[in-house]
Nucleic acid binder design. Structure first.
Length: 457
DNA sequence: TGAAATGTTGGGGCG
DNA sequence: ACGCCCCAACATTTC
């Protein structure tokens, strides 16, 4: 018997670790270790999503004649114990990139025959380097090298059946449910991919920037836990692109594929530069004097900054465990640039709240926004939350959805409600400073302040 | 995957 | 006819 050690590949279709394990013969025991170290970190929605995903996977395994063995504790001990218990020859697992997983896996490999299999990304990180072998640190050349590799559109089918598992002990999963907006499981991942490919992907070029429209795939949590394989998603996007005649639709597909490549770019960055989880990628950006401002941070977290576009994003995050990408940029920029609070505080909050929270992508995004990272936004690029709102939520639909106090505010004032005359405030049944805060910081002032802080840093 | 400040151009009103 | 001013529209530069 061998072990298929599941970590963030909760799927049966296009699972290379599972396939290799099956091909090794002699039977496969699917196992998941509830890692105390990881579960101790606050991330209720993501954990609920994971647990529900494991329940769904267990059901799928039952259907094929197998089942999921769950253990709890330190994975190094638990995998070694399980391997000894079942007399496992080898342990097969999908290779991960975070420093924690690298250290964990090398500790496991010291105790059992651990075989790590590619599959988290589409192309192995080792294949995408500059000609001298060093890693790319700029997205565009990285993506060119990525696209130059032969497209691997082959998707491994889910096995038709699996070997039965003898009566090994398994601990129950915590009952924590997945958030309502994200039912977990491979089936739901596939459903969402198909729904996205049936239309929205063709408008993705513009649609992806509009938090008021459902223009994105909302697949991020499923990709995060491998409930859909990135390779299958990309193959489907390429196929969709080939089937449409017009350039605009093809651009949508291409643009979405680029987002998949961003994901792998940041995986590569984390793999090669693990210190980014601790400090700025750019050494020159490590001496910025951040503000210690707990009240401002609290206002940001709770969506009470007085800037509707920022507050809408933060409340969407708190309510659903997900935030539209455009809103992620706007809210992150606001924390770092307007409030001058260390991007690492925001990174940590997002990791607590996000269902799709992934160290590589989340860190990459925050360092990009803060201007401290690879291929980052220049520090002087300061988003104006009012203009961003006007551009990307022109009718204020997104704001009214997530900031109900402003529901009756006219579109004219929806992005800057503090400019409402008193009579308008009464009409809209919202008094600025009472039912909705006045801006906690003036835009022009904040802009000048952050430019100064960065240029001194 | 910016925004603001500054510069340039050109049409129109006007004396 | 002409210069002047205003200002929108666009372009460039600066942060």
């Amino acid at each position: 018997m061998n072990i298929w050690w599941i970590r963030r590949d909760l799927r049966l279709e296009d699972n290379q670790a599972l396939t290799v394990a099956l091909n090794a013969g002699t039977g496969v025991v699917p196992a998941f270790i509830l890692d105390e170290h990881l579960l101790a970190k606050p991330a209720e929605k993501r954990h609920g999503f994971l647990f529900e995903g494991l329940r769904a996977l267990d059901e799928d395994l039952h259907r094929l004649g197998s089942r999921l063995i769950i253990r709890r504790g330190d994975p190094v001990e638990e995998i070694a114990n399980l391997a000894a218990e079942i007399g496992a020859g080898s342990v097969f697992a999908e290779q991960d990139v975070s420093p924690y997983s690298l250290q964990r896996d090398s500790a496991v490999a010291a105790k059992v025959n651990l075989i790590l299999v590619h599959g988290l990304g589409i192309h192995p990180i080792s294949l995408i380097t500059k000609s001298d072998g060093s890693p790319y640190t700029v997205f565009t050349p990285f993506s060119r090298a990525w696209k130059a590799l032969p497209a691997s559109d082959h998707v491994l089918p889910a096995p038709a059946s699996l070997p039965a598992i003898p009566g090994f002990a398994s601990v129950p999963l915590p009952l924590l449910p997945a958030p309502d907006s994200f039912p977990a499981g491979e089936l739901e991942g596939r459903r969402r991919l198909n729904a996205f490919l049936a239309g929205p992907i063709f408008d993705y070029e513009a649609g992806r920037d509009r938090p008021d429209l459902n223009g994105t795939s909302s697949l991020s949590p499923y990709l995060r836990f491998g409930m859909i394989s990135a390779r299958k998603a990309a193959a489907a996007a390429r196929q969709a692109s080939r089937l449409v005649p017009d350039a605009q639709s093809r651009a949508g597909c291409e643009s979405w594929l680029n987002e998949i490549i961003w994901r792998e770019f940041y995986q590569s960055i984390l793999y090669h530069f693990p210190y980014v989880l601790k400090t700025a990628f750019k050494p020159s950006m490590r001496s910025i004097r951040w503000r210690n401002a707990p009240e401002d941070f609290q206002a940001w977290k709770t969506g009470l900054t007085g800037y509707p576009m920022v507050d809408a994003g933060m409340r969407q995050l708190a309510a659903t465990g997900w935030m539209h990408n455009r809103s992620r940029m706007i809210t992150a920029s606001f924390l770092v640039k307007h409030l001058l609070i260390n991007w690492q505080e925001g990174e940590s909050w997002f990791m607590q709240m996000l269902v799709d929270g992934d160290p590589a992508s989340n860190n990459g995004g925050w360092q990009w926004t803060a201007g401290t990272g690879t291929d980052a936004a220049p520090y002087f690029r300061v988003f104006n939350p009012i203009l961003q709102g006007q551009k990307f939520d022109p009718d204020g639909i997104y704001i009214r959805r997530w900031v109900p106090e402003l529901r009756n505010v006219s579109t004219k004032y929806i992005h800057a409600p503090w400019e409402m005359p008193e009579s308008e405030q009464k009409n809209a049944s919202v008094i600025i400073g009472r039912n909705y805060p006045a801006p906690i910081v003036d835009h022009q002032f904040a802009r000048q302040r952050v430019l100064k802080a960065y240029s001194n840093g």
